[in-house]
Amino acid sequence: MSERAFLPVRIAVLTVSDSRSLAEDRSGQILVDRLTAAGHILASREIIHDERDQIAARLRAWCADPEIDVIISTGGTGLTGRDVTVEAHRDVYEKEIEAFGTVFAIVSMKKIGTSAVQSRATGGVANGTYLFALPGSPGACKDAWDEILVHQLDYRHMPCNFVEIFPRLTEKMRRK
Rank of each mutant, 00 (worst) to 15 (best):
C160H: 15
A105T: 11
S73Y: 06
A133Y: 06
I41L: 15
R58Y: 03
A56D: 03
E67S: 12
G136S: 07
D91H: 01
Q152A: 11
T80H: 07
V125N: 08
H157Q: 07
P138H: 10
D53N: 07
A37Q: 15
M158A: 05
L59V: 02
K172N: 10
D154I: 14
E24Q: 14
A23M: 09
A57W: 01
A61C: 00
Q29K: 07
T85K: 03
R4T: 07
A140D: 05
H157D: 02
P66V: 01
K95W: 06
R45I: 08
E164L: 11
L22M: 09
M173D: 15
S17H: 09
E94P: 02
D25M: 11
L42P: 04
A38K: 13
D143V: 05
R58I: 02
P167Q: 10
D143L: 08
E87T: 11
L14F: 02
I68W: 04
K172V: 10
R34S: 08
Y130V: 06
Y130D: 03
A38S: 13
L169R: 10
V86A: 02
Q152Y: 12
G78S: 03
H151N: 15
A23V: 11
S19H: 10
R174L: 14
A116K: 09
P8V: 13
V92C: 06
T74G: 09
G101H: 01
R60N: 11
R10A: 02
G75Y: 10
I72K: 02
H89C: 11
K172R: 14
R52F: 01
R45Y: 10
D91C: 02
W145I: 11
S119G: 05
Y93I: 01
A12Q: 11
A126Q: 07
L79S: 10
P159R: 09
Q54V: 06
G113H: 04
I72V: 14
R26I: 14
H89N: 00
V86I: 12
E3A: 05
I48P: 14
D50L: 03
V32Q: 15
E171F: 09
C63E: 06
G39T: 13
G139D: 14
E96I: 10
R90I: 01
T122F: 02
D18I: 05
F100Q: 03
E96Y: 06
L131F: 03
R20M: 08
E147W: 05
D91Y: 00
